[in-house]
Amino acid sequence: MKHIHYDGSIITTGDDIAEAVVEYAAALGANGGTDTVHVPTFDAHGTATTSTILIGPASQIVVSDADEDELEPEDEGFVGRLREASAAAGSVQVVHADRGPTASER
């Protein structure tokens, strides 16, 4: 599981979901775009919920490891849609110094 730190809030979600959000934020930032994203998550009581975040060129998103939990949300449809949106965000390619190309660039 991962924590997405956004605008003073902490959103707990699955690993793949958090990675897709960061990739999309990077693609939007590189291309000057904005979007609202409804992130599958759950609250402190384990209830499934959704957090809506606005992502744009000035977004400051940090992802950190969370305690592992059997309730980790997984949403392949959400991850797929976000990766497609990353690929369609614009022609400027995102550079990741610490790893290879993003999933949307493969």
Score class of each variant (00 low, 15 high):
Thr50Lys: 09
Asp16Met: 14
Pro57Ile: 11
Thr102Ser: 13
Thr52Pro: 04
Ala27Tyr: 01
Gly33Tyr: 01
Gly80Trp: 04
Ile55Ala: 05
His45Ala: 13
Val62Arg: 15
Leu71Trp: 05
Ala103Cys: 00
Ala103Gly: 03
Thr34Tyr: 07
Gly56Pro: 02
Gly32Ser: 11
Asp7Gln: 14
Ile11Pro: 03
Glu70Trp: 11
Val79Gln: 03
Gln60His: 11
Asp16Cys: 13
Gln93Leu: 08
Ala97Lys: 01
Ala97Leu: 03
Val94Lys: 00
Asp15Leu: 11
Thr47Tyr: 06
Ile55Gln: 01
Leu28Asn: 01
Thr34Lys: 11
Gln60Asn: 13
Asp98Phe: 11
Ala20Gln: 03
Thr49Phe: 04
His45Ile: 04
Glu23His: 06
Ala26Gly: 02
Val92Leu: 09
Val92Trp: 04
Ala18Tyr: 04
Gly29Asn: 01
Gly90Leu: 06
Ala26Glu: 07
Gly46Ser: 12
Val63Lys: 05
Glu23Gln: 10
Thr102Met: 12
Gly14Ala: 08
Val79Pro: 01
Gly32Ala: 09
Arg81Trp: 04
His3Tyr: 15
Pro73Asn: 06
Ile61Pro: 10
Pro40Val: 02
Thr102Val: 07
Arg83Trp: 08
Pro40Ala: 02
Ile61Tyr: 08
His45Thr: 12
Asp75Ala: 07
Gly32Val: 07
Leu28Gln: 01
Val21Pro: 01
Phe78Ile: 01
Glu68Ile: 12
Ile55Cys: 01
Ala25Trp: 00
